[in-house]
Structures are given as structure tokens and as C-alpha cells.
């Protein structure tokens, strides 16, 4: 138990450091890579909570697919020249205020919500594939299928937009 507590602190430190570096880094490529590191740290947290399926899927979807496409875009758009996009002071102040407001809202939500501390995550079985599959396909069957239809619609839309001549 002591060992996993140390792991928790190390992972949290890595996650927060990487998240800060995403904002601070000058080069967009470095930002994208730090974001990937943050995703890996969060996947580590899932494993500490005994949610192995969630952790692995998190890595496959975020680190494996979405971030690779991000890097792809950064490479192709040639955003690697530092300081190419100077932002105006107004934009900086506005984004800081907007971000701060979001943080405030999140804090307010979590304060009113009674967070339960999981006594022993090793005994918590909900993150394993079997129990998760049962919950998804029995209790939440309709929302699950509806969300898959939503993804299909997004996919078809992307293909239609990417097509140059629609006939």
C-alpha cells in the first residue's frame, strides 16, 4: 500500500508537470509530446485504481490515435518555427480569464459533490473487462448503441467533407 502511494505521488507530479509544460513550451511539437506524457501519467492513475481496461484503452485512443494525428498536423502545417504566431495582449488576458473561470466552476462542482474515497482499489472490480462489458451491454445498452451511431455519423461527415467532388 505504501508503494502504491509513492507511485500516486510520482504519477501526479509527472501529470501536473507535463500539463504545465504543454502551456509553457514555445514549440508546438514539444507541447503535443508533453500532452502525450500527461496522458500516460493519467493511464498510470487508472491502473492504480485497478481499471486496467480503461488504462489500456486510454493509451490506445489518446496516445495511439489522437496524439499521432496531432503530431501529423503539426508536422504538415510546419508549425515548428518558434514565435510565428504572436498573440495580442487582449487574447492572452481573455484566455487567462476564461480558463480561470472554468477552474472556478470545476472547483465549485467538486466541492458540492460528496467524493467517496475508495477504501481498497484492488478489490474494486468495476474496471475489469468482464464487469465493464456486463454493465455496458445490460444496464446502459441503449446509450452505448446511440453513442456508436453518433460516431458513425461523425465518420460519414468527415468522409463527405474530405471528398472534393460530390456527385
Amino acid at each position: 500500500m505504501v508503494f502504491s502511494r509513492y507511485l500516486f505521488f510520482i504519477l501526479s507530479f509527472v501529470a501536473i508537470y507535463a500539463a504545465l509544460k504543454v502551456l509553457i513550451s514555445k514549440s508546438p511539437m514539444h507541447s503535443v509530446l508533453y500532452l502525450t506524457l500527461a496522458f500516460f501519467a493519467i493511464a498510470g492513475h487508472y491502473i492504480l485504481l485497478n481499471a486496467q481496461f480503461l488504462a489500456v484503452v486510454h493509451i490506445i485512443v489518446y496516445a495511439g490515435a489522437i496524439m499521432v494525428l496531432f503530431i501529423y498536423t503539426v508536422m504538415l502545417l510546419n508549425l515548428n518555427i518558434q514565435g510565428e504566431f504572436p498573440k495580442s495582449k487582449f487574447a492572452n488576458i481573455a484566455s487567462t480569464i476564461a480558463g480561470g473561470l472554468l477552474l472556478l466552476t470545476l472547483i465549485a462542482i467538486f466541492k458540492s459533490y460528496d467524493l467517496k474515497v475508495i477504501a481498497n482499489p484492488a478489490l474494486n472490480q468495476i474496471g475489469l473487462v468482464k464487469s465493464l462489458g456486463k454493465v455496458l451491454f445490460e444496464d446502459y445498452f441503449l446509450p452505448f448503441e446511440l453513442s456508436s451511431v453518433l460516431f458513425l455519423a461523425a465518420m460519414v461527415g468527415a468522409v463527405m467533407l474530405g471528398k472534393k467532388d460530390i456527385y
Binding site: 481496461f53 493509451i59 490506445i60 496516445a63 495511439g64 490515435a65
Partner: peptide, 8 residues
């Protein structure tokens, strides 16, 4: 799934 993740 772990193998998928490493692949990706």
C-alpha cells in the same frame, strides 16, 4: 489490448 497499445 496491451499489445494493441504498444503497436499504436
Amino acid at each position: 489490448l496491451y499489445v494493441f497499445a504498444i503497436l499504436s
